[in-house]
Design a protein around this nucleic acid. Structure first.
Lengths: 229, 229
DNA sequence: ATATAAAGTTGATATATAACAATGTTACAA
DNA sequence: TTGTAACATTGTTATATATCAACTTTATAT
């Protein structure tokens, strides 16, 4: 992880809610410059169990948000793409992260001191409301995940996940930033069965795979498989 | 569900955050009297998929919060006891509930118009912060639940659930407000296996059961079983 | 008090999925 | 360029857990 404090928000293309609040209020931009960091693949952005000290904003790249469970097994809840708040779910409540986030590729994030964020949203409820909104979205997706993991069987889970990834990439044809093992961690399926199911779907001409490149050939069927469970 | 609008917050013993905000600000108490309701067992308090129109506050009794999944199967996430916000998780984000809540016994709730709550927390961030805090707590507990349901096996899940219920009742000996089927819905275990495990634990002198009364005899062992998975 | 439904129980069987093992393939560093 | 580690694949076996079926007990309503 490479930090730099020179970077100015003025040149940032994303303009997060925190930034817009900062310039709206009389809090100077200069003394509150966020910490900018460039991350390599596999770099840990935040770690389950550690203290929440900054709001983190994903500016570039992508990351996986996951809970570290028993026996070194992870469950990936979702993939983050910019613009996304990372500290979000742990933000208001506990001082400790209840999950971890690591970069899936070369990425960039901003660290904004929690003290500043808190100060800002006491002065400005717009910010708190917008943070809340993003927060709520995550909850809805987590509910869906719980149903999926517990009530669908592996074929349905993989199908659902492929649809999710396709929507994330906005295309029926995309490059997985994820290993088979990680696909397994998103669906709570063993690595071996993940592989088996992907080749099964290939044989059935529902998808086409070439290494980590995936193309969805029969989306309606995939949706059906996902819905049946 | 029996409604009454006569009830005044002044006589309420709980004094929720919304009430304290209401009297702190110049919003009159009289014109903003909440809708008070008395519920019977099994009464639905809010229903997954329906519009969120009120903040709901549980004043008396208890309720189960659950997601309605596939094939009429539910997953109970947790039990609510007063004081508790019910609309919470769906509050900020979506206009629709992502879960359902029903009363487990004769209970009382307050319905506070969402418009009023929103107006209040724009005027008063203290309220928003306190709602947020409660919100965050739920998220943490849901994370735990995901791990439990996906990475522990049924013995560990039942053990964990018995500990949870014991803590909820603040006693090693308590009356379940839940059927065996509902215990199964809390742990994602079939009703039959739920029964089997409870009798198993009884035979092993870890618990003692008499109908829906449960006494935990060996808490350390139960904790061990829960941790091992 | 009796009927009927809901809840609880127990055993036998089926099955989805993980775990194990072995091997092939690709990426990457010395 | 070769060696090493991470990733991917395939077949076999083991097992946890659901499902099915039959039965008992307890509530609830007439």
């Amino acid at each position: 992880m490479k930090f730099s404090k020179g970077q100015s928000c003025d040149t940032c293309l994303l303009k997060c809610d925190i930034y817009s609040t900062l310039i709206k209020t009389e809090n100077g931009m200069e003394e509150n410059k966020p910490l900018h960091a460039i991350l390599k693949k596999h770099d840990v952005i935040c770690k389950q169990g550690t203290e929440v000290t900054h709001a983190i904003f994903l500016v570039k790249g992508s990351a996986k948000l996951y809970i570290e469970g028993l026996n070194n097994r992870n469950i990936i809840l979702y993939i983050l793409k910019p613009p996304a708040y990372i500290g979000l779910l742990s933000f208001f409540d506990s001082p400790f992260y209840s999950y971890s986030v690591t970069a899936l590729e070369e990425s960039e994030v901003c660290f904004i001191e929690l003290g500043l964020v808190k100060k800002l949203y006491v002065e400005n409820h717009e910010l708190l409301l917008s943070l809340n909104k993003a927060f709520g979205k995550s909850v809805t997706s987590i509910m869906k995940k719980i149903i999926s993991l517990n009530q669908k069987q592996i074929r349905g889970r993989i199908a659902e996940n492929l649809i999710y990834l396709s929507e994330l990439h906005n295309s029926h044809s995309f490059h997985l930033g994820l290993s088979r093992k990680e696909i397994g961690e998103m669906t709570a399926i063993s690595e071996e069965n993940t592989v088996r199911l992907l080749t099964e779907f290939s044989k059935e001409k529902i998808i086409a795979t070439k290494g980590r490149n995936i193309e969805i050939l029969d989306m309606p069927l995939l949706k059906k498989i996902s819905e049946v469970g």
